[in-house]
Computed example of a mutant assay.
Amino acid sequence: MSTTPDTNRVALVTGGSGGIGRVVAERLAQDGFAVAVQYAGNRAKAEETVATITATGGRALAVGGDVADEEAMSTAFDTVRSALGGIDVVVNTAGIMILSPVESLDLSDLDRMHRTNIRGTFVVNQQAARTLRSGGAIINFSTSVVRTQLPTYSAYVASKAAVEAMTLVLARELRGRDITVNAVAPGPTATPLFLDGKDDATIDRFAKATPLERLGRPEDIAEAVAFLAGPARWINGQVLYANGGLA
C-alpha cells in the first residue's frame, strides 16, 4: 500500500525503539510523517530509529518515559508538540507479554502486564484524546490471541481484551472531533516479543497455522497501521486483525 506523503503530520509511536514499533515509526516516516519515537528504558535503540529516519531526510526525535506514568506521558506529549508543532497520530505499540497457565502465574507478572498494557494504554489514550488535532488517529495494539484462546496466554489476552474495549468506547467518546480510534491485532509475528522462549517446532507450528503458511513480519503490521493512520478515515471504532487469515 502506498499513501500520499504528508509532511505536515506528526506521529508519536510508543514502544518505537524496537520490534513492531520501530518498523511502524520508519514506515510512517516514509509516508511523510514527522515521528516521535517513545522509549521506556533503551534510549540508544530509540536514537538508532531516529537516526535511520533522519538519514533518509525525515524528521524524528526520541522521547522517554513510562507509558503508565501520567506525568511522564504528559511531559512527553508536551515535548513532541513543542518540537514538532503538534500531534496528529498516536500509535501505542508499547506492551509486555508473559505466558503462563492460570494456576501457576506469578501475580506480580499479572500486575506488570496490566500496568503496561492496560494502564499504559489508558494513559497514552488519555493524553491523545486531550491533544490530538482534528483529522487525527489513535491506533492501539491488541492481539489475535483474543480470538484463538491459546493456553498460557490468559493473563496477556485479558490485558489486550481490555485494550479492545477501551478502543471501542473512546471512538464513541470522541464524536465530533474527526479523530478515529482503532486497534490492530497482530497474529504470530516474527519479533523478539513473540520468538522469545519458543523452540523451532513451536515457531513452525505457528507459521503453518495461517493459510499463507508463514509468520507475519513487522512490515506487514506496519502496513495496517499506515492504512489506519492515513487514508482510512471511514474506519473507526474497529479492531483490525492483521494475521494472514488465522482463524
Score class of each variant (00 low, 15 high):
2 S>T: 13
2 S>G: 05
5 P>S: 05
7 T>I: 14
7 T>M: 09
10 V>H: 03
12 L>S: 11
17 S>R: 05
20 I>V: 14
22 R>P: 03
22 R>E: 15
27 R>P: 10
27 R>Y: 04
32 G>V: 08
32 G>A: 09
33 F>W: 00
33 F>M: 02
36 A>T: 11
37 V>Y: 10
42 N>D: 15
42 N>F: 09
42 N>G: 09
43 R>F: 07
47 E>G: 00
50 V>Q: 11
53 I>K: 08
58 G>W: 06
62 A>F: 10
63 V>P: 07
68 A>G: 06
72 A>E: 08
72 A>I: 07
73 M>T: 06
76 A>W: 10
78 D>Q: 14
80 V>F: 12
86 G>Y: 08
87 I>D: 00
88 D>V: 08
89 V>W: 03
90 V>H: 11
92 N>W: 06
92 N>C: 06
96 I>M: 09
96 I>D: 13
97 M>S: 12
98 I>Q: 02
99 L>C: 02
99 L>V: 03
100 S>E: 09
101 P>Y: 04
102 V>H: 00
102 V>P: 01
104 S>P: 00
104 S>F: 04
104 S>L: 06
106 D>I: 03
108 S>G: 07
111 D>G: 02
111 D>M: 01
118 I>Q: 11
118 I>Y: 08
120 G>N: 05
121 T>V: 04
121 T>A: 12
122 F>I: 09
124 V>W: 02
125 N>F: 14
126 Q>F: 04
128 A>T: 07
130 R>Y: 11
131 T>I: 12
132 L>N: 05
133 R>A: 15
140 N>S: 14
140 N>L: 04
140 N>R: 11
141 F>W: 04
143 T>G: 12
149 Q>R: 12
152 T>M: 00
152 T>I: 01
154 S>H: 02
154 S>D: 04
156 Y>W: 02
157 V>T: 15
160 K>I: 01
160 K>M: 06
160 K>N: 04
161 A>Q: 02
166 M>A: 13
166 M>W: 02
171 A>N: 07
171 A>S: 14
174 L>Y: 04
174 L>V: 09
177 R>E: 13
177 R>P: 01
179 I>W: 09
179 I>N: 01
180 T>A: 03
180 T>S: 09
182 N>P: 01
185 A>S: 15
189 T>G: 05
189 T>S: 04
190 A>D: 14
191 T>I: 14
192 P>D: 10
193 L>F: 08
196 D>K: 15
196 D>Y: 11
198 K>F: 14
200 D>E: 15
203 I>D: 05
204 D>F: 05
205 R>D: 14
205 R>P: 01
206 F>L: 03
207 A>F: 13
211 P>F: 03
214 R>A: 12
217 R>Y: 07
221 I>A: 14
221 I>P: 10
227 F>C: 07
229 A>P: 06
231 P>S: 06
233 R>Y: 00
233 R>C: 02
235 I>Y: 06
235 I>S: 07
236 N>G: 10
239 V>M: 08
240 L>W: 11
240 L>H: 12
242 A>R: 09
242 A>L: 13
242 A>W: 01
247 A>C: 08
